[in-house]
Design a protein around this nucleic acid. Sequence first.
DNA 1: GTAATAATCGTATGGACATACGGTTATCGG
DNA 2: CCGATAACCGTATGTCCATACGATTATTAC
Lengths: 191, 191
Amino acid sequence: MCELIAERGLDAVTVARTASRAGMSVGLVQHYFRSKDDMLLHAFERVSAAVATRVAGIVSAGTRHERSIAEVLLAALAEHLPLDEPRRAEFRVIRVFAGRALDNPALAGVDARTAAALHAEIARAVGNGVECGEVEPDVDADTAAARIAAVAEGLATQVYRGAHGAAGRARAVLRAELAAVFTGECRQYVR
Amino acid sequence: MCELIAERGLDAVTVARTASRAGMSVGLVQHYFRSKDDMLLHAFERVSAAVATRVAGIVSAGTRHERSIAEVLLAALAEHLPLDEPRRAEFRVIRVFAGRALDNPALAGVDARTAAALHAEIARAVGNGVECGEVEPDVDADTAAARIAAVAEGLATQVYRGAHGAAGRARAVLRAELAAVFTGECRQYVR
DNA sequence: GTAATAATCGTATGGACATACGGTTATCGG
DNA sequence: CCGATAACCGTATGTCCATACGATTATTAC
């Protein structure tokens, strides 16, 4: 069904089409989901969780290889950028839902929780950076995290829109933004 | 009709409801718009133009009062933040359309043009900053503009979502971001 | 003043869709 | 083996909506 959303948008998502695309009957879809809204909500949760899982994987891999926090964070945030087709499709799905979330409390909840989780993860990274010397001690983790999250989100939009040169410079902008916070060398690993 | 979108979302927008809300008949709406899509497109153009106009006003007022470029830019970007109810409503409308733009080329065009115009305006401001000494000469205007636009957009999302503390710190984050680019004092006005 | 054009209305039609429902087949615990 | 529960199907129903259409009233142009 995410396929369907990515290809033709939420309006094209009818229970019947979704069923047919999944090779099942309308009745079976109804067996699993109380209502269409329910189905949509599950889809949003699924796709949000999918990217969160991938990001978590990147973080743990980076940590294992003893990369600096800034490097790991860069990789994690770049994962959100719609730089190739699968990620563009995923981005489209998430944004379509985000648009719908504006007048659907259930979807808005998922959106808010996902964003809060990302914010928390970034803030934690900044906090750890302070511990290990990559970040100046007077930096406020929440403020820095808000700023970094904002840039990442805004860049993703620009890249998706195909703004002139956006895809080419997105990674550099992200790196510059992180460099403004992670100004020191890592002395010890506190993760 | 933007009222209607802001209150109940795009799904609630039917030609009949829109007509009734505007105190006219279905037939009259049809007289002015070839189709519902046409009506929606006009609405998106109207609301996009409205915020662009307000921003232009802020810029020209700031210029008249001989404020620094960074100050004017801060005011212009803060205008996009959904910090009060009218702006929240407007934000909702624009984002709802942006969501729809993902599978509607006509809406996507409006979105892209609006974003490009904002980017160009910021880039011009940075360029002027170089001329007048507020910005280091080696700063690339397009990259700086992308970064600033990304932060502004991301912050707006955070504020709207009601992320913890987002509304309170948004302006400060914006100011910090601008301070990273506009590092010098203005020596002459080249606008 | 009259012809043409714009503004305005109300209704009808046909299509699409979510959901309800009654039924059938498979799975499995006891 | 058998009762229950889950998996699964197809159709029917009622609603909602965009658009078409024909009619009526204002406005303007000549």
